[in-house]
Nucleic acid binder design. Structure first.
Length: 983
RNA sequence: GCCCGGGUGGUGAAACGGUAGACACAGAGGACUUAAAAUCCUUUGCCGAUAAGGCGUGCGGGUUCGAGUCCCGCCCCGGGCACCA
């Protein structure tokens, strides 16, 4: 047999034998435990697989192969996420159709996966663009629609006014279209949504039971962003700046104000009247002013969503009327007001201004009631804000901007007017699109207040550490200084562990008491209510593109929407020559009359929906299709899904941490509610692999050159880099991509070093979830390890005793033989546990260590071993090959055959370890004095506490360190160490 | 700004709160060879002398008999983001 690793001599042979044996076809034998191991399905690109893709395929393959050998029925499928923008764009460029192109790419992926020996059951494979698959994606759309979870509403798309096309977020760079360079506009069109927000609580709660990386779970919780708070109403009033100043200065301090708070509008008007010396009966001119003022309060607003809030305002008007019957109250319209949501209602007395998103509907009404100069500023700011893309508005460390509207809102708890600003750091899409600003206790509000000279009013007493950290003064002086000039303290105090100050009758309350009491007070007054708010928004699935799953809806002439009957599914994509974007923002499908024009079941004319579904729809249920991939009559059979689900181990990149995984979880819950599956969660365990980075040359920037966002050098090819002077070139590790020219393919690695060397390198180089800096040299190193394995097996082979299992019990084993068996069984134990816990680098390390131990033992016995050593070596060589099999399956089968064993390693039973054989007779015990290592002793493994303690005290080294000290205490950890504490 | 990860020898990395550096690479020395490659052996955290001893897991504190590991406060690097009130 060969005593070297020569992969080219046997890889092809084993690929064929595996194929002939149909080795990877899913076993479905009753009575066996199931294991469903799955990789994220890839998008098949023309560049083919890089070694980066293999980063998760190989480890998943290792665990699936081990599970199979352990006797599980293993489902290990692979498919292709074929719909999407890149395929469509490439096909347009190539003037071909995406379908045959995708088929060709997928075939190449499959070839490459087979090349490196991944054990996929190809009989279950499909692409998401297969009509037999997307028929059921459409069926699921209809399921969601019927359950009230799919709806249409207006939503903005990125519109390129030059190319006249809708752009994906990805195609917008710094507010401009990537291709045309045009400033991207917003265009509002009706689009389809799935109501994922309805499942927000369940999507948070069920995370607890999942065996996922904590970081990913946290990211999902943060994405859903459940927060409990209070939403309350703020009426808008128009005041002159002077009037505002007088009200503020004339008001008693909130802390001293003990009377029952009155309604804000009334208070504001009264204050205004009083401040001008108004007496209703005596001064007609001032009565007229009051009337005008009042009228401005009566502008209509649809911002009042809660009837209880409306009631509250009506009552206030009634009170006002009672107080000033001479005023004519116009009741025909509602007063402008808006709602704010806050999680920190306890800080409401610290509100010194409020901020509306520039798009907030009430802003236009405000503009119409303030003086022209302010109105103009508002419109100017709105225009600017509109031009800035969402992404840029939310970009990091952006300078906050905003303008004062000229109007005021009334803080309902102390009746004080606060100026209303508009600023784009408040988003129209989250919460109510309006905030109360408490600069003393919110960093963003603080920054804004500092920039625009707005007041900062502390209402939570800062604790000692905060003040001490921010000031060299003593605690009392620091508190005084803080209350006098909070703006000089930064960062702001946001802690919830203190009590309130300057907060009327809530002063002295703890934060949590104040939150509860304020919420109750607002609810009892009808001013506001407790509310749970989510960051999560509904899932927008519409795409104005050709290459996606058609949405199975017909719009009847009367505007009614009907689902395409199930028996008419799938709605197939028409095979057409042209599917370029249409120039009017609609899908290319809209320009294919034979597709669009159709009739419904009753024979009425209708038009098909022409949007397609975004790719996340296709990937939200494919794991279920794998359980029953050929069923023409159902998406899946419940019994089969129940047999396989959940996916026991789902492996892919962390870049899908939120969206894909959240959508798949959402759909699974819908299926559960519909009785289609028995699991509430699709993926029991999730693992994220690290990236593979390629060594990439960059050239220094030359004068006059501009860099792309986020780059600090110009990407150059390897050829260009070789020609440049070394000082011009910097090398960096960067994600492998075709455009960077740093891609290493599995094909070249297999060619050069063999599939198993590539597989072991990927496993060994770094922990599974850490990034790998790719080095060909490393693959070579692992091929050398395989060389040593081949050499060892060849050396043992002449004395190999296939019947060792039956004979080994009858032999008297010496210390050497017992040591070999111990290594064997320890290795089985450690390897099995480490594959299970995705610690593949140590899996390979144990095999290396084991081989080293076996080679040492072999060196001692020499060419003429005793019967006993031949038997333990036979056990060892068999074990080594079987433990190697999941990681290096080609080599394992070759070695298995070379020692005369029948069959394939996959069909062998995974070795089991014997705890008695794995245990050590003698152990090294660490002897510490005061926690510092002073000596180590070899001791019998069964030595008890007393034996250990006296042995430790007997150590000469220990005694020198104990000189002149008294032993206070002795800690004995049997099997580990003795720690003598002495003074 | 917010969120999530990380910081351990020359390098990739190991390490249930219990002997820090397993396993490998690179380096040094040696064997074999005309020579090289390949292979094999020895050695390698730092200071110190090949000793004794001391120092060492980003920094500063703390808990503990004992901390890379747990707690508090920082610094730096990477990734993500929808400035989420």
């Amino acid at each position: 047999m060969a005593d070297r690793y020569e992969p080219s001599s046997f890889e092809q042979k084993w690929r064929k034998r595996w194929d002939d044996a149909d080795l990877f076809r899913t076993r479905e034998e009753p009575g066996r435990e199931k294991f469903y191991g799955m990789d994220f399905f890839p998008y098949p690109s023309g560049a083919g697989l890089s070694v980066g893709h293999c980063r998760n395929f190989v480890p998943t393959d290792v665990i699936c192969r081990m599970k199979f050998m352990q006797g599980h029925n293993v489902l290990h499928p692979m498919g292709f996420d074929a719909f999407g923008l890149p395929a469509e764009n490439e096909a347009i460029k190539r003037r071909s159709h995406p379908e045959p192109m995708i088929e060709q790419y997928a075939a190449n992926y499959r070839r490459q996966m087979d090349l490196i020996g991944i054990s996929y059951d190809w009989s279950r494979s499909f692409a998401s663009s297969d009509p037999t698959y997307y028929k059921w994606t459409q069926w699921i759309f209809e399921l969601l629609f019927r359950r009230g979870l799919a709806y249409r509403k207006l939503a903005a798309v990125n519109w390129d006014p030059v190319d006249k096309t809708v752009l994906a977020d990805e195609e917008v760079v710094a507010g401009r279209a990537e291709r045309s360079g045009a400033l991207v506009e917003k265009k509002w069109i009706p689009q389809w949504f799935f109501k994922i927000t309805e499942y927000a609580d369940r999507l948070i709660d069920d995370l607890d039971g999942l065996d996922w990386p904590e970081g990913i779970k946290t990211q999902q919780r943060n994405w859903i962003g459940r927060s409990e708070g209070v939403q309350f109403s703020m009426p808008v009033v128009a005041l002159t700046d002077d009037a505002y100043a007088r009200i503020i200065s004339g008001e008693p301090q909130p802390a001293a104000k003990q009377s029952e708070p009155r309604h804000s509008e009334l208070e504001a008007i009264e204050a205004e009247l009083r401040s001008t010396g108004f007496e209703p009966a005596a001064d007609a001119a001032k009565a007229e002013k009051a009337r005008l003022l009042h009228e401005s309060l009566n502008r209509s607003s649809d911002q009042i969503s809660s009837s209880s809030v409306q009631d509250g305002i009506e009552k206030a008007v009634e009170r006002m009327q009672a107080k000033m019957p001479e005023l004519e109250i116009v009741r025909t319209e509602r007063r402008p007001s808006f709602e704010v949501f806050t999680t920190r209602i306890d800080t409401v007395f610290g509100m010194t201004f409020c901020v509306l998103a520039p798009e907030h509907p009430v802003v236009d009404r405000i503009a119409s009631m303030v003086d022209p100069a302010h109105a103009e500023a508002i419109h100017a700011y709105q225009t600017v804000a509109k031009a800035v893309s969402d992404a840029d508005r939310q970009a990091a460390q952006r300078e906050k901007t905003g303008v004062f509207t000229g109007a005021y809102a009334i803080n309902p708890v102390n009746d004080q007017p606060v100026p209303i600003w508009i600023a784009d750091y408040v988003l129209a899409t989250y919460g109510t699109g309006a905030i109360m600003a408490v600069p003393a206790h919110d960093q963003r509000d603080f920054d804004f207040a500092v920039k625009y000279g707005l007041d900062v009013r502390p209402v939570i007493k800062p604790d000692g550490p905060y003040l001490a950290g921010a000031s060299p003064l003593g605690a009392d002086e620091a508190l005084d200084a803080y209350l006098k000039d909070p703006k000089s303290f930064n960062p702001v105090f946001e802690s919830k562990s203190s009590t309130l100050i300057n907060s009327g009758r809530y002063t002295g309350d703890t934060v949590s008491d104040a939150q509860r009491r304020l919420a109750e007070w607002m609810e009892s007054r009808g001013i506001g209510e407790r509310k749970v708010q989510y960051k999560l928004r509904d899932w927008l699935i519409s795409r104005q593109r050709y290459w996606g799953c058609p949405i199975p809806v017909i719009h009847a002439a009367d505007g009614e929407m009907q689902l395409v009957p199930e028996e008419c599914l799938p709605v197939e994509l028409p095979r057409v020559e042209h599917y370029e974007p249409t120039g009017d923002g609609t899908s290319p499908l809209a320009h294919i009359p034979e597709y669009v024009n159709t009739t419904d079941l009753d024979g009425r004319l209708g038009k098909r929906e022409t949007d397609t579904m975004g790719g996340f729809a296709c990937s939200s249920w494919y794991f279920l299709r794998f359980t029953d991939p050929h069923d023409a009559d159902h998406a899946w059979t419940k019994a089969l899904a129940d047999a396989w689900m959940p996916v026991d181990c789902y492996v892919g990149g962390a870049e899908h941490a939120v969206m894909h995984l959240l959508y798949a979880r959402f759909w699974t819950k819908v299926f559960y509610d519909a009785g289609l599956v028995s699991v509430k969660e699709p993926f029991k365990r999730l693992e994220n692999q690290g990236q593979v980075l390629g060594y990439t040359p960059y050239r220094k920037v030359r004068e006059g050159e501009k860099l792309d966002v986020g780059e600090d050098g110009v990407l150059v090819s390897f050829e260009q880099a070789a020609k440049l002077p070394p000082s011009e070139v910097t090398w960096r590790w960067a994600r492998m991509s075709k455009s960077k020219g740093n891609v290493v393919t599995p094909d070249e690695m297999v060619e050069q070093y063999g599939a198993d060397a590539l597989r072991l390198y990927l496993l060994f180089k770094a922990p599974f979830n850490a990034d790998i800096n790719w080095e060909n040299k490393g693959v070579e190193d692992l091929s050398k390890f395989l060389n040593r394995v081949f050499r060892f097996v060849a050396a043992v082979q002449p004395n190999f005793a296939a019947e060792w299992r039956d004979l080994i019990g009858f032999e008297e084993l010496g210390a050497e033989e017992r040591a070999v068996r111990r290594a064997t069984h320890q290795t089985i134990r450690d390897v099995t546990a480490d594959i299970e816990r995705f610690s593949f680098n140590t899996y390979v390390a144990w095999l290396m260590k084991y081989l080293n131990a076996l080679n040492d033992a072999l060196g001692k016995t020499g060419a003429a071993p005793t019967r006993a050593s031949a038997l333990v070596m036979s056990e060892a060589v068999e074990t080594l090959v079987l433990l190697l099999a999941p990681g290096a399956p080609f080599s394992a089968d070759e070695l298995w055959e070379s020692i005369g064993k029948q069959g394939l390693t996959m069909h062998q039973e995974w070795p089991q370890f014997d705890a008695a054989l794995a245990s050590e007779d003698e152990i090294t015990v660490a002897i510490q004095v005061n926690g510092k290592l002073r000596d180590t002793l070899r001791m019998d493994a069964s030595a008890d506490r007393d034996t250990l303690e006296s042995a430790a005290k007997g150590s000469a080294k220990v005694q020198t360190h104990l000189e002149g000290k008294t032993i206070v205490k002795v800690i004995v950890v049997p099997g580990k160490l003795v720690n003598i504490v002495a003074k």
